[in-house]
Structures are given as C-alpha cells and as structure tokens.
C-alpha cells in the first residue's frame, strides 16, 4: 500500500488544483447562469419599484390618519434640545455593546437573567418581531405575496434567537399564526396589518416603561456601569431601541473566550449562553456544560448551551 510520504506536496497541489477545476466545470454544466441572473434582477426590480412608489407617498401622513403615531414616531423634537442630532443606530449599538463587554463575566451572567433586564430584552424581541410582521404585510400586499415564504422564513429565524421569556415567545408566535392565517386565506391583510400596528404601539410603550423601571432599579452609584447603557437606550429613538436591546441580549449571552473559572455557577441559568473552547469554566462544571451544549451551525469551536438541570432555576 502507498504511504502518505510517497506523495510530495507539489503533487498534492497539482492534484487538488486539477480536481478543483474539474469540479467547477462539472458544476457549471448543470447551471443556467443567465436564468439565475435574470431571476435576481427581476426580483430586485420589485424592490426598486416599491422604493420609487414609496418616494411618492407621505407615509407618516397616511399612518397618522389611521392610528395615533405620537408614541411611535420619535423625532429630534422629542429631545429637549431642538438642535440635538441623534447618533446613528449602529454607533449607539456599538457603544452599548462596548459598555456591556467591559462588565465582568459574572456580572453579565447575573444581568442576563435579572428579571428587569430579561423583561426588557423579551419585550424588545417581541417588538422586533412585530416590526418584521408589519413590514412583511406591507411588502406582501404590494408584491401580491411573491416573497411571502422567504420573509416568513426570516421571521422564523428571528423567533429562534433564543427567547428567554415565554411571554415574548407567545406574542411573537401569536403574530406568526395570525400572519399564517392571513396568508393562507390571501385576504384580510389590511386588518392583520392594523392589528399588528396596534400591538406594535403597545409593545413600544411597554418597552419604554420597562426601561424606565430598569433605570430606577439600577440608577445608583454602585450600578453605574449597568445604568449607563440603559440610559443611552432610553434616549434612543424607539425606531432603533428594540433592535439595539436585542443586540445587548446577544452580547450578554456571549461568553466566548471569557474566564469563568472562579465563578460559582450553582443555580445560575445557563441556557442560551454561547461559549468557545477557550472559555474557562470552573473545572467541575466543564463536563456537564459540554454535555448540555451543541455546536453553533457553521462554526467549529463555538457552542451554545441548551437545557440541562442546572439551567432550570436560580435562587
């Protein structure tokens, strides 16, 4: 039998290169590249038309005629200083993430399940889901449901982000069912959208109040590091607030590379935490955490904790 030493590196390179070329040629023979390109250009033409039509409409005026938009259309005027220019959402998100990542991992572990913070994040997840549904209904009506399936799949992925609170999951799933019903019957899209807008407003107000409560809870010198990102979020326009809070939740769950070797994990809920091979766990916890974890798809060394007896309750 031939040993691996019999094959020089150059031969391997030549062989893989030849094989790669043959593979590409074989795949190409099964494709209609022009048809694929036409599919993309045609699909995106819908978006261009929508964009064009949108430019001709005063959406806020139309929306105001239907619902009370006072709570959901925050503008510069909302800030006491009329000259205040709110920073871009990505800048705010980056600032909040940076503040959270400076917290010690044990603090992050406590925060991610603190009822006040978890409540805000759960509402934010439900709020972003309701926004997606409203957008979906708008696009579905305009495109005659052409993209319904794709967007519904995106929504499913959104729901799979690891909701920590049953109430948020229930709200989002209820919206999903209502949407499925509307789609199945290809009617009542306007009514579904009106209901979704009502719920969106309610979630927006609930989230603002939840953030106020969280600020009251943490607004003291000892908790300044937690209060600061919350204060930034409270000042953030509500159009961006929920999305950034969801990012904050993801950041709290991210313990990739963190050192938890000295942290007491007894009764700490760990479900949903992402970790990596260089995350340091207390020695007597590592085996159980490995048993309770699964790989994050598309990665080789990032894992997520799913269930496990130690994740059920926390004192």
């Amino acid at each position: 039998m031939t040993s691996s030493k019999d094959i020089p590196d150059t031969d391997l390179d030549d062989w893989t290169s030849t094989q790669q070329s043959a593979l590409i040629a074989d795949i190409a023979s099964h494709l209609d590249v022009d048809a694929g390109l036409r599919e993309i250009l045609l699909t995106s033409r819908h978006a261009a038309v929508l964009e064009d039509v949108t430019d001709k409409l005063d959406i806020e005026a139309g929306l105001s005629a239907i619902v009370d938009t006072e709570e959901t259309t925050p503008t510069v005027a909302e800030h006491p200083d009329a000259l205040f220019q709110p920073p871009a959402a990505t800048d705010i998100a980056n600032t909040v993430v940076k503040l959270i990542t400076t917290l010690p991992p044990e603090t992050r572990l406590v925060l991610r399940t603190h009822p006040t913070i978890a409540g805000c994040i759960a509402l934010a997840v439900a709020h972003t889901a309701s926004r997606e549904i409203i957008n979906f209904l708008r696009v579905a009506r305009a495109l005659n449901l052409t993209h319904a399936r794709d967007i519904a799949r995106d929504l499913d992925r959104g729901l799979d982000r690891g909701l920590t609170r049953d109430i948020a999951r229930d709200i989002a799933r209820a919206l999903d069912r209502a949407l499925a019903h509307a789609l199945a019957h290809d009617r009542d899209l306007d009514r579904a959208r009106a209901l979704a807008l009502d719920l969106d407003h309610a979630l927006d107000r609930a989230l603002a109040h939840a953030l106020d409560r969280a600020l009251d809870r943490f607004n003291r010198p000892a908790h300044e590091a937690v209060a600061k990102p919350l204060a930034i979020l409270r000042q953030t326009p509500s159009t961006d607030r929920a999305t950034i809070l969801v990012t904050l939740g993801d950041t709290l769950n991210d313990l990739v590379g963190a050192d938890l070797s000295g942290v007491d994990l007894t009764d700490v809920p760990l479900d949903g935490i992402r970790w990596s091979l260089d995350t340091q766990w207390p020695p007597d916890w590592r085996a159980q955490i490995e048993r309770d974890s699964e790989s994050v798809p598309g990665t080789a060394d990032i894992f997520i904790i799913r269930g496990g007896s130690h994740t059920e309750t926390r004192v």
């Binding site: 062989w15 893989t16 094989q19 790669q20 043959a22 593979l23 074989d26 795949i27 099964h30 494709l31 209609d32 590249v33 048809a35 694929g36 036409r38 599919e39």
Partner: peptide, 26 residues
C-alpha cells in the same frame, strides 16, 4: 430549486447531485 439549476438537474442522481460521486476530492 432556483432557476439557476437546469430543470433536468433537480434532485435526480443523474443531475447536479451526481457531482458528489464524480469527484474524489469531495
């Protein structure tokens, strides 16, 4: 499947899926 695939390709083993069997490198 997307229209990028020739209609004959689909999931039939005689179509694009057979690529998997034809290339030792895979």
């Amino acid at each position: 499947h997307t229209s990028l695939l020739h209609p004959a390709s689909g999931i039939e083993a005689s179509g694009i899926e057979a690529v998997e069997q034809r290339h030792t490198v895979l």
